[in-house]
Design a protein around this nucleic acid. Structure first.
Lengths: 186, 186
DNA sequence: TAGAGCATGTAATAGGTTACATGATTAG
DNA sequence: CTAATCATGTAACCTATTACATGCTCTA
């Protein structure tokens, strides 16, 4: 009986303040993109369900020229349900790391192919690290007095730790692969 | 036009040697479980499809007392398709880290709740690290002369780097949270 | 005037897990 | 005697993405 985490991801956003589905998508893209994402195809039906389950209430904000905004706010019941999920211990995560899948079968292709793959992966992670560091600076100034800031910074630090670990692993792996290349060429 | 990676995961296993669907599941559980998994509901239909697409051929191994084994082997066409996928650069991975989702909304619950959550996460990762180190030792002895060994070890090293990064992050985060606790209590 | 942004939502499709069905053998 | 292992496979179900439909306004 595993329940989808998307529901709680949406409720979590609502816990910060009442917003529309459109806003929620933006939030995910702006602040959670490096560890979570949700599509409209998930968000809108979830909001509807939250309302029928009494976990959120909807109010309509009329606008001129633009479509109306459907603003959702958590109810007490919703806040309680969110908290209950928050304190449930997390399960094991079996992320599917495509780079490892490819490397696991590395013997099927040439050394150069493997090197190229790892170098490309290193490039990706190096860019991501830069982005994370940049958004850390932004957050610190933009939300200086927000009580959520400490928690948001913790998630960013996580990204930094992991990405630096990726880079170190890439360097080690590339050194091994290049060593094998030398050996084969000799 | 993103193609499912499960297909290539199965083909990758077949590239090591001809096996049955049952064996493939076992392989995933034994050697790839810390970064990849596939269920029977995926494996069997994929094998069928590989055969109809000419990427693999099936032969039947009769057994007495036990059900027959359907052994699949990659064809040249299959081996070529696998190699083509192998050299395609990997995309960005947006793993969904439940612990981060919970921590991002950490302000909604108490400091103790957050501490408990991170401590539990640390416990999980610490166990996992032990498992990875243990299987590294096993691999080194069991597959001493296997040409795949170098690549398999690389994937294990990755797991070690990442898991050690998790532990360091947990320690940093726990220190911050406990510092906040002190402050609040003072 | 073309395209991006605002804003809602649904339908089609893909990706994936779990539970079930079958049935013999073997280990505790 | 019970449970696990061997071994195949399917059906029901859940989860998630992508593409589409609508239509106004503002910017390049």
């Amino acid at each position: 009986m595993k329940e989808s985490k998307s529901k709680y991801a949406v409720m979590g956003i609502l816990s910060i303040g009442p917003v529309s589905g459109y806003d929620i998508k933006k939030k995910f893209e702006k602040s959670l993109s490096y560890f979570w994402s949700e599509s409209y195809g998930q968000i809108y039906p979830i909001l509807k369900r939250l309302a029928t389950e009494g976990l959120a209430i909807r109010s309509i904000q009329k606008q001129t020229g633009k479509p109306d905004r459907h603003i959702y706010a958590l109810t007490d019941k919703g806040r309680k349900a969110l908290r209950e999920w928050m304190i449930r211990p997390v399960g094991r995560l079996i992320g599917r790391h495509e780079i490892l899948l490819k490397l696991f079968f590395g013997h099927q292709v040439s050394l150069e192919d493997n090197i190229r793959q790892v170098e490309h992966f290193r490039e990706l992670q190096s860019e991501k690290l830069k982005e994370i560091i940049a958004s850390e600076e932004m957050l610190k100034t933009d939300y200086k007095d927000n009580p959520n800031l400490t928690y948001w910074l913790m998630t960013l630090r996580y990204g930094q730790y992991i990405n630096r670990a990726y880079l170190r692993w890439c360097d080690e792996t590339l050194a091994i692969l290049k060593g094998m290349e030398q050996e084969a060429g000799a």
